[in-house]
Design a binder for these strands. Structure first.
Lengths: 244, 244
DNA sequence: TCAATGCAAGTGTGATCACAAATCAAATAA
DNA sequence: TTATTTGATTTGTGATCACACTTGCATTGA
């Protein structure tokens, strides 16, 4: 019955890696994904296969497959030239993304609000403290940590909604709005992280009370904030460009 | 100014294909996509790269990239053996898919109901007639045409919702529920197409009246039907398997 | 007869190569 | 000086190869 672990190769090493070993392609894909959600790429930035292959210390093969996957998720865009780039930001696309996120993430959090266990609620409650820690040492903004913490908080909730269909869609939406979000957070200058903590606190309170509607409303307020901020920024830029 | 068409190669051929020529990879991807939405693959069926490459008269390269893209869309499943298969049907997954489709396609049709032009409404109205045509020559069911017509009707509506974010998500959902749907349609035996026409008629009526809520309700009834039918079938199979 | 071992065919993955198209830069002509 | 063209470089795409792993079957042993 222990056939899976008992191979002709070293049984100890086999136990350390019991499941299928990770492929280079997946590593590249996850790396690019993380970079996109974190907003490490600029909107409209073009990516080349060989460039990424060199940067990731691999050949072109895993990169091109990863890029293809990201293009189908609309996380990247295939130009008619066959080059690929990070999709540019437009007002219409932003509103579109926000509406979809409100719809789907709102549904997910409403489901989660009625299903989260006390243990899961304790987990997201403990995450609130990390915002205070971050505000305590108020040196220059650690945008990476903000993004990571925000992501961990939200997906800890979404994972509890119990839908294997909704969660990948939410991941796709984050992937698509990642570059915009980063731009918004930078534009926020400071005063960003304290607000985030406040909204997250409201969300946790609603979930702890099993208040699905309250949780959905709090979430909408939370994810709308960077979008509305970015929207006003884009609008001012647009009219400036028009006058020029 | 005619630099684009004036190449060193044949200018006539260049004009016949003015935009980027299609890649083999895209052809394979669209082919597999069509097959999946149409339910040409059985649930749990495993697909091999070389097998598909031979069937599609190409090398393994475009196939593996297309498979990778379909895996990220959850249209296919990567087994720990590294082989890929069509995801099997489970009750939980079906309910999950149906809920997501109601949520997203419902939103899309509600948006479309307030935005469709008379011309677009006339288009989907004309599609109703094709169901009558099909019922008129009532030889053996033409499942392929049913699926195609149903798809064309729905996406003609969704395209009018004006959301470049929602439409790909809906396509992904159809891709994931395609194999289930085909099983359900086959199980329907006959009496399937007449009902479809009836539900579509209700949808068109609501849209013509710009009744967003009515359109959403009619759509929910339409897409729920095959799922509830398949659900009862799976449940009876499950208890039969339990007794055996 | 049945289980285990070993061999062979099949399969996915990554690297490399060949080719066509696009891009960029320098050189030439007006 | 400016616009056009020519050539070299870069880039994406598809094919092929090499390797590792899995799977299936036949052989061998008890």
């Amino acid at each position: 019955m222990q056939k899976a672990a008992a191979d002709k190769s070293d049984p100890i090493a086999a136990q350390l890696a019991p499941v299928g070993r990770e492929t280079v392609q997946d590593r590249v894909y996850l790396e690019l994904r993380r970079a996109l959600i974190g907003g490490l790429f600029e909107p409209s930035q073009v990516l080349t296969i060989r460039g990424l292959a060199d940067a990731l210390m691999t050949s072109t093969m895993p990169v091109r497959e990863a890029l293809g996957r990201l293009i189908t998720e609309k996380a990247l865009e295939a130009l008619p030239n066959r080059s690929v780039r990070v999709p540019p930001i437009t007002l219409e696309r932003m509103d579109d993304l926000l509406r979809a996120r409100i719809l789907i993430e709102g549904e997910a959090i409403a489901l989660a609000a009625t299903r989260m266990t006390p243990r899961q609620i304790a987990t997201i409650e403990s995450m609130l403290g990390e915002w205070d820690e971050m505000r305590a040492l108020k040196h220059k903004k650690d945008v990476d940590r903000e993004v990571t913490l925000n992501q961990a908080f939200h997906f800890e909730i979404y994972r509890a909604c119990g839908s294997a269909v909704l969660i990948p869609m939410i991941e796709s939406l984050w992937l698509q709005s990642g570059p915009c979000i980063r731009v918004a957070i930078y534009a926020f200058s400071d005063a960003g992280e304290v607000d985030t903590a406040h909204y997250h606190r409201t969300i946790v309170k609603a979930i702890a009370a099993q208040d699905a509607k309250g949780a959905r409303d709090a979430l909408v307020a939370d994810i709308s904030r960077p979008f509305t901020f970015l929207r006003s920024k884009l609008e001012s830029e647009a009219e400036k460009g028009q006058s020029a």
